[in-house]
Write a protein that binds this DNA or RNA. Structure first.
Ligand SMILES: NC(=O)c1ccc[n+]([C@@H]2O[C@H](COP(=O)([O-])OP(=O)(O)OC[C@H]3O[C@@H](n4cnc5c(N)ncnc54)[C@H](O)[C@@H]3O)[C@@H](O)[C@H]2O)c1
Ligand SMILES: NC(=O)c1ccc[n+]([C@@H]2O[C@H](COP(=O)([O-])OP(=O)(O)OC[C@H]3O[C@@H](n4cnc5c(N)ncnc54)[C@H](O)[C@@H]3O)[C@@H](O)[C@H]2O)c1
Lengths: 206, 206
DNA sequence: ATTTAATGGTGACAATTATCACAATTGAAT
DNA sequence: ATTCAATTGTGATAATTGTCACCATTAAAT
């Protein structure tokens, strides 16, 4: 195993997966590289190159078998390789992420949310409970969670991150507009919506 | 003008901007490539290469002037080049985006939100009003808006997108897990959180 | 004035990613 | 059976992106 899949390919694979799932729902047995390419606005040879990485073979004049393809993508991206995580900050964004149906299926198990607003404590969202942030160290240890999704307001982001790190969190998926300061052994992944928009804006609008 | 800035560089520039702004708040006059690199966990020569693209020159043993650098990044990324947009779907995610303070500063003007839930109509969020979705065609025309940020639940995504396109929307920033079907002249930009996580997961956690 | 060490600048190279062109295959039409 | 056209597979090539090594510069220390 352990074939390294390039970053961009990973991104496309998730899109292929989504489209293929749709085809399967519509009882379509096959899908061609150009059907996928058209939908994503990319070159069809790109699609075939991607599938070659997965050792997925198609048939001329027919395309790829949707069922096989879907399973292959799921295996490649490791959707069955579950990872546990907490959401920290049960505000609008935190709740939206907790509701996002894809995470559960795709290997990211969100076990609970945390907040410091007394009104929110003990609420349930999508079968996940909201705990007081003070409970996090204990629960992180107990449930063996080392991934946190950070969605608190900007002014508190650094302090909360420090607290998470003290609590044993090793991986922070950062949705706040702060570029966090963290020791080297902590992995921070900044979600960068602004950059995403600017690329959209530059590439597509100018 | 019109120097093309590569995609990855755009992403890093937004991070540099954030960190430099912080330095300026702290009254720091200069910042070095290695300070920036360390914070972002990248190579310091990368930072210098990026700045070379902006024609930003630093001084040996001193670094880059924070004020100049910030202005340069803002000019390069076109923050003053305002674009108007609507948010369609005023749920958790839509409201979180409406509250995200960065957009306004960085050239994306969100003028209003739209929903079909009577309870939400006429509410205000962050000085933006929520309108009934039926009002969208008229307002899009009147306010000259051709960008929509799509945050409705998955089952309605395609139908709503079709409606947006009929209403004159040309650019759709799609936050739903659907890969939308759209005619060629419509630009769709899929925000892909799953891919983002998988990259984080693969690169950093394995 | 001289030395030193931190820092920027840059060319060479390596790795990744995308595009193009076209041969090979094969289902379907005749 | 033969032809045709759609489709995959893939090598060549181009474009983008990242890393490394090392020189040049200069503020600070002596
Ligand atoms: N990066 C992005 O793309 C993006 C997009 C939208 C929003 N955001 C950011 O996400 C963050 C959350 O946005 P939102 O709209 O959900 O805000 P919100 O105000 O709705 O939610 C923040 C939540 O954090 C909680 N909180 C505050 N301090 C806390 C603490 N010390 N410990 C635990 N919980 C705490 C609050 O009680 C609240 O429930 C903001 O930083 C926002 O800028 C980022
Ligand atoms: N791509 C991502 O990274 C990501 C992350 C989180 C959520 N999401 C997606 O974003 C979408 C919204 O998530 P959410 O948590 O905000 O959901 P939500 O249910 O809180 O909000 C959806 C809103 O859309 C409104 N709506 C429904 N049908 C409509 C219609 N026809 N016209 C106008 N408005 C309509 C609803 O009234 C509601 O206010 C979902 O598709 C979700 O899967 C995507």
């Amino acid at each position: 195993m352990a074939k390294k899949i390039p970053e961009k390919v990973v991104s496309r694979l998730t899109f292929y997966h989504s489209i293929v799932s749709e085809f399967i729902e519509q009882n379509k047995k096959n899908i061609t590289s150009s059907q996928l390419a058209q939908r994503l606005n990319i070159d069809d040879s790109q699609v075939r190159k991607d599938f070659k990485l997965l050792n997925e073979v198609g048939r001329c004049r027919v395309g790829y078998c949707t069922k096989d393809l879907k399973e292959n993508i799921e295996k490649t991206l490791g959707f069955s390789n579950k990872r546990n995580a907490f959401i920290v900050g049960a505000g609008h964004l935190g709740l939206a992420l907790a509701k996002y149906d894809k995470f559960d299926n795709y290997g990211l198990n969100i076990l609970a949310l945390f907040d410091n607003d007394p009104l929110k404590i003990d609420m349930q969202i999508n079968e996940k409970k909201i705990y007081h942030i003070a409970k996090l160290p204990e629960l992180a240890c107990e449930l063996n969670v080392d991934i946190a999704i950070l969605t608190v307001p900007k002014p508190f982001a650094q302090d909360v991150a420090d607290f998470l790190i003290e609590s044993g969190i090793r991986y922070i998926w950062n949705f706040t507009p702060c570029v966090l300061n963290a020791p080297e052994h902590i992995k921070v992944w900044n979600e960068n919506l602004m950059a995403s928009f600017l690329q959209f804006a530059c590439k597509e609008i100018d």
